[in-house]
């Protein structure tokens, strides 16, 4: 049984360009996803790839231009109109910035207790007790309930956000870059907390990140996005096998890596991500791709199955042939 099914999701934003002319930002342009209960799907991409817009559509914070999001077989748009409370109990969200995503004027106990109160999940007399339990689950002492957000560090606030999401026992938590504002040593603590909660409660995650190395340990499935589209997706085994799409490869290689041998030349992408207002013709990546051929400039590739994953590249078979096992090992071994 699928928990979440995203079908041909499109989110376009009209923008004014001044003097009465307008344009359309194609933030998300036809994305299909599926998440099973208790599973983690990581969406990885750089800024402007549409990963956050996708997350907001899934979490019901934004309405898709077209396409469909189904939660346990029910259309989420219908559920949001008919029974919004049920939708919110199914899907919760944790945001990137721990400073702006909690109300500074309210105590931690109130922030976490809101979900319990609004959804009438526990009688008022037991609410404080349940808040204490939630605080403990995210690794905070019970007396934090009486504190205000400004008394907490970034990592602690992110724990509060997680406890708030967890309060209503959701089936899915959408995590939009939950650790990228935190220091590396604290990142590991919060990531481990998410993994532990998943094992204890069977919650599924849609995990948005720009860092492939970070999601490697927690994702069951991964999808790499570029300019509003998924360019490669599959289960976590692709981390060991190696990515086939040239963009996914570059994203992996470009991240600075401790222990990379001196003189190992990494092919860097040229230029910046093009504007999602007028994405390039043909394959959207062809303007930066080191493997571009004439066909890429005119014909947009479909996402199609190759070697056990889905790839949006005309030359995926050639990439596969080129990726010899020892090379793949060298490219993806840690440190």
């Amino acid at each position: 049984m699928t928990l979440l099914k995203v079908h041909k999701l499109v989110r376009h934003f009209p923008v004014s360009r001044g003097f009465g002319s307008s344009a359309i930002v194609r933030a998300v342009d036809g994305v299909d996803l599926e998440i099973a209960p208790g599973e983690t799907l990581a969406i990885v991409g750089e800024s402007g790839c549409g990963k956050s817009s996708l997350a907001r559509c899934v979490a019901g914070l934004d309405t898709a231009t077209s396409g469909k999001v189904e939660v346990e077989g029910t259309d989420s748009a219908d559920m949001l109109t008919a029974d919004p409370m049920r939708f919110r109990r199914s899907i919760q969200m944790v945001f990137q910035d721990p400073y702006s995503s909690v109300n500074p004027r309210r105590r931690i106990g109130e922030i976490i207790g809101d979900g319990l109160r609004l959804h009438k999940l526990v009688p008022r007399a037991q609410r404080a007790e349940r808040v204490r339990e939630l605080l403990e689950q995210v690794g905070l002492a019970a007396d934090y309930a009486d504190r205000y957000p400004h008394e907490l560090s970034g990592g602690q606030r992110q724990r509060v956000s997680i406890a708030r999401a967890l309060a209503v026992n959701p089936r899915l938590i959408v995590c939009d870059e939950p650790v990228s504002a935190l220091d590396v040593s604290v990142q590991a603590q919060v990531m481990n907390l998410l993994v532990r909660l998943q094992r204890d409660h069977g919650v599924a995650y849609l995990f948005i990140s720009h860092d492939l190395a970070l999601v490697r340990h927690i994702a069951h499935k991964v999808a790499v996005m570029y300019l509003g589209q998924v360019v490669e997706s599959g289960d976590a085994a692709i981390f060991d096998q190696g990515f086939l799409h040239p963009y996914a490869q570059s994203l992996f290689d470009a991240a600075p890596r401790i222990g990379r041998p001196e003189g190992e030349e990494v092919e860097l992408l040229e230029g910046d991500v093009p504007s999602p207002i007028s994405p390039p013709s043909g394959c959207r990546f062809h303007t930066r791709c080191p493997q571009t051929i004439d066909r890429c400039k005119v014909e947009a590739p479909d996402l199609r199955p190759v070697a056990g994953r889905d790839v949006r590249c005309h030359r995926a078979e050639e990439m596969l042939a080129r990726m010899m096992p020892p090379q793949a090992e060298a490219a993806f071994g840690t440190g």
Binding site: S185, V186, G335
Partner: peptide, 21 residues
């Protein structure tokens, strides 16, 4: 600790962490 955190070293789905703040 910083080195392990930066390498995203992990075991059994968990990353190596430095406790505390």
């Amino acid at each position: 600790g910083l080195l392990r955190a930066a390498r995203k070293e992990g075991r059994d789905g968990f990353l190596t962490e430095i406790p505390g703040v």
